[in-house]
Computed example of a mutant assay.
Amino acid sequence: MDKAIHTAMSGAVRTMQAQQQHANNLANVNTGGFKADYSQAVANALPSEGMPTRVMVQTGDVWSDFAPGAMQQTGRNLDVALATPGFLQVNDIGGEPAYSRGGSLTLSAEGMLADASGHLVMGQNGPVEIPPHEQLLIGEDGTISILPEGDNEMAVIDQLQLVNAEQPLIKGTDGLFRTENGAPPVADPTVRLASGFIEASNVNSVREMVSFMSLNRQFEMQLKVMSTSRDMAAAGDVLLRG
């Protein structure tokens, strides 16, 4: 019975991890630019002196779905959606480069351009700083133009750093992407933006709910196996004592 209990237990642990992942997807159904996360469960036979009789469940590949989300028009001049494959480059909380498709941008009190989570958005020479202005426009190539206060002519002040990673990206707990080996992607002049739009999350709430319910039933079944194994082990002990 020991083998059945441990196999069911490892499956229950893996099921809880999958539930957390799907719950996180559901929690971000309204987060602009969010990409749903998925993982694979694999069976791992534990080595033994005889036949491998005990199998544990482990998490295999973990990946993000990079399918584009729907384009939502906002009309706000600081909102940008990536209309092609690619990413905005930002600085994470530690000042290291990271990549995002969340295009709901804001201006700090100091005039720094940041994303919705406060990460500084990168331009061609570092974080983008916006001088006092009466009007601001972001072009499809990321060019930032402003109408300075007291002036009547638009001026280009910077260009967003747009990249298109050809190497695998991994998502951190902060929701930002980074390259697997730490090497920065190169700037890609073919990446295009749609100003006045944001990209919605690509999470399918119905699919996530169905998956969550299925995992919940699976978890209950695994607990039932553990309970039954415990009862059978207890019955065997009674027989031995008798």
Rank of each mutant, 00 (worst) to 15 (best):
P52Q: 07
T53V: 12
V55W: 04
V55M: 08
V57F: 06
V57L: 10
V57H: 08
V57T: 15
V57C: 01
V57E: 10
Q58G: 03
G60S: 08
G60E: 06
V62Q: 15
V62M: 12
W63P: 07
S64K: 09
D65I: 04
A67V: 01
G69M: 05
Q73D: 02
N77V: 13
N77S: 15
P85Q: 06
G86Y: 02
G86E: 02
F87W: 14
F87G: 02
Q89N: 03
Q89V: 01
I93A: 15
G95Q: 12
G95E: 10
P97F: 08
A98V: 11
Y99H: 09
R101M: 05
G103I: 00
L105I: 06
T106V: 05
L107D: 07
S108I: 03
S108V: 01
E110G: 11
E110L: 11
G111I: 04
G111A: 02
L113H: 05
A116M: 14
H119E: 00
H119A: 01
G123V: 03
Q124L: 08
N125L: 01
G126V: 01
G126H: 08
P127V: 03
P132R: 03
H133V: 02
H133I: 02
H133G: 05
E134N: 12
E134R: 09
Q135P: 03
Q135L: 09
L136M: 13
L137E: 14
I138W: 08
G139T: 05
G139Q: 15
I144N: 07
S145Y: 01
I146H: 11
I146Y: 12
L147P: 08
P148C: 04
P148F: 04
P148D: 04
G150R: 05
G150Q: 06
D151L: 03
M154H: 03
V156H: 06
D158S: 09
Q161E: 10
L162N: 07
N164S: 11
A165K: 06
A165W: 04
A165L: 03
E166H: 13
E166L: 13
P168V: 02
I170M: 13
I170N: 13
D174K: 12
D174A: 10
G175Q: 10
G175M: 10
G175S: 12
L176A: 03
R178H: 07
E180A: 13
E180W: 00
N181R: 14
N181S: 14
N181Y: 11
N181C: 06
A183V: 15
P184R: 07
P184D: 09
P184N: 11
P185E: 04
V186R: 12
D188V: 02
V191G: 11
L193C: 10
L193T: 09
